[in-house]
């Protein structure tokens, strides 16, 4: 469980996050949604510690990430898996080396144990016989799946996904969404996904936080988001002709 309490973040004169209060639950896929430039990526980067927050607190199961020492932060970071928008796979390493990298850094597992774990994680994301391929030889969807395998290889307690569906076709997007949702429930991970893909919202949104102009504007789930009277939410959800037609029916 991650608690975000009164978090604010400013870049120069521009206040990007304004007093955000939200809780992300364990074993659920928690979605941060909002228009481009609303502050959702900044919120995620604050959550994982890539941006320091100006005020407030972020608690990981009661441990305050914003006030603890660098060494304690490192311990929490080792419990975090993250899926980046572009995958962020290490170009100089093949698929297998990418997946076992966190294990090599932070565990004393033997090489065979690490390879077994890599094979298990790759199988879990429906990838087999790609161990020796390099990231440049993979398709967009495969890169995302390898990145998920790397993110879960060290059994993380927290999984963060930044725009996991960007650049993917709708069918592959659903595969990735379902995969993240299954993994979240199977390993009881606290998963936070940053997205503006409405398919994801409807498919896997156990909990949804809508950010609007740096404020937490609305909270709910995949059912309540379709029936809310909130104008800004409706403008976002029904922004496309397709969703408006579906609503009309």
């Amino acid at each position: 469980m991650i608690d975000v309490i009164n978090v604010s973040k400013t870049f120069g004169e521009h206040e990007v996050l304004k007093n955000i209060n939200v809780r992300f639950d364990k074993g659920k896929t928690n979605l941060i949604i909002g228009q481009s430039g609303s502050g959702k990526t900044v919120l995620m980067k604050c959550l994982v510690g890539l941006f320091p927050i100006d005020s407030g607190t972020i608690n990981f199961d009661g441990r305050s990430f914003s006030t603890i020492s660098y060494e304690e932060k490192k311990k929490i970071r080792q419990e975090i898996g993250m899926l980046f928008q572009g995958g962020a796979l290490f170009d100089s390493m093949n698929v297998e080396e990418n997946v076992i990298f966190p294990l090599s850094m932070f565990t004393d597992m033997s090489i065979n144990e690490k390879i077994d774990r890599a094979n298990f994680c790759l199988k879990r994301v429906n990838l087999e016989n790609v161990n020796k391929l390099f990231p440049s030889e993979l398709s967009g969807g495969m890169k995302k799946r390898v990145a998920i395998a790397r993110a879960i290889s060290a059994n993380p307690k927290y999984l963060f996904c930044d725009e996991p569906n960007s650049g993917l076709d709708p069918a592959t997007s659903i595969v990735i969404d379902n995969l993240i949702s299954e993994i979240t429930q199977e390993y009881q991970i606290t998963t936070v996904i940053n997205t503006h893909d409405m398919n994801s919202v409807i498919e896997i949104g156990d909990k949804i936080a809508f950010i609007y102009k740096g404020n937490l504007w609305w909270e709910g789930d995949k059912n309540s988001i379709l029936n809310t009277d909130n104008k800004e939410i409706n403008d976002f959800v029904y922004a496309t002709e397709l969703t408006r037609r579906i609503k009309g029916k």
Partner: peptide, 17 residues
């Protein structure tokens, strides 16, 4: 520099490295 702009350094940092 390429590792930085493709978020590979961020990925390392989040791992606690």
């Amino acid at each position: 520099g390429t590792m930085r702009v493709t978020e590979q350094i961020d990925a390392l940092e989040i791992m606690g490295i």
